[in-house]
């Protein structure tokens, strides 16, 4: 993991470069004939939502890996993933709300997609809180791993909520049905590039937080060792 962390600075600069190019693209696409300028909100909302789900999936995999192999690297990455995922989920909900007000005429509706996404944010916050409630890293890691694995049931609910129930939220933007994606024409390429940029952003933030956690744990262990020798 140390080699990955050393490369993270370059990943950060690459992400910033790609995000800048994406922003230029986003503000040069034509306005949507129904949504007008508000369509530009979706270039932040959709990639953030995809990343909020993807990061939780990664968090679940790291949790399984930790419980199975007792790997500290998996535990550190799982802890970092909770913070990164919470940020993506928060931006998803806030940007969705700011899109919903002009388009639906309301900031919030207790719709299946919106509610299940809120549950995901609460899960992330719960995982962070549970870990911080333990002084013992091993016990905290085990408890949060179990909670994260059980919480993964929310992922298919979020993904299929717009298919299973009649919701206010529209169907998936990247819907690959016979009719193709629901976003087409010049509006689609910036969304694809923005999604790629958000994957890089997620990786960068994950490694940045993981480095901080790793250093904090090493420092704590050293201080504990010094205190026991004193």
């Amino acid at each position: 993991m140390n080699r990955l962390l050393a490369w993270n600075r370059w990943l950060g600069w690459g992400t910033l470069l790609l995000l800048s190019a994406c922003l230029w693209m986003v503000f040069h696409v034509p306005m949507d004939y129904q949504q007008g300028n508000a369509v530009r909100i979706l270039y932040v909302h959709v990639p953030s939502a995809k990343m909020a789900l993807f990061v939780y999936l990664i968090l679940t995999l790291f949790s399984i890996w930790y419980l199975w192999k007792k790997s500290e690297t998996a535990d550190i990455l799982a802890e970092a993933a909770a913070y990164v995922g919470a940020a993506f989920a928060l931006v998803t909900l806030v940007s969705g709300s700011l899109w919903g007000k002009p388009m639906w005429g309301t900031w919030w509706a207790w719709d299946a997609r919106l509610t299940s996404m809120l549950v995901l944010l609460i899960l992330y916050v719960g995982i962070i809180a549970l870990r911080n409630a333990f002084d013992d890293t091993v016990k905290g890691g085990r408890a949060t791993a179990i909670l994260a694995i059980f919480g993964a049931v929310d992922l298919p609910i979020i993904h299929f909520s717009v298919v299973w129930w009649r919701t206010l939220h529209q169907p998936p933007s990247f819907n690959q049905s016979a009719s193709g994606p629901t976003i087409t024409g010049p509006l689609l390429p910036p969304l694809i590039w923005m999604s790629v940029a958000f994957v890089l952003l997620g990786m960068f933030l994950l490694l940045l937080k993981a480095r901080e956690i790793q250093q904090r744990r090493t420092l704590d262990a050293m201080e504990l060792e010094r205190a026991s020798h004193a």
């Binding site: 949504q35 300028n37 508000a38 932040v44 806030v94 940007s95 700011l98 007000k101």
Partner: peptide, 13 residues
Amino acid sequence: DYSVYVMVVYLFA
């Protein structure tokens, strides 16, 4: 014009 909503979203993100 929904520019204010767009600006708030991008600033928040």
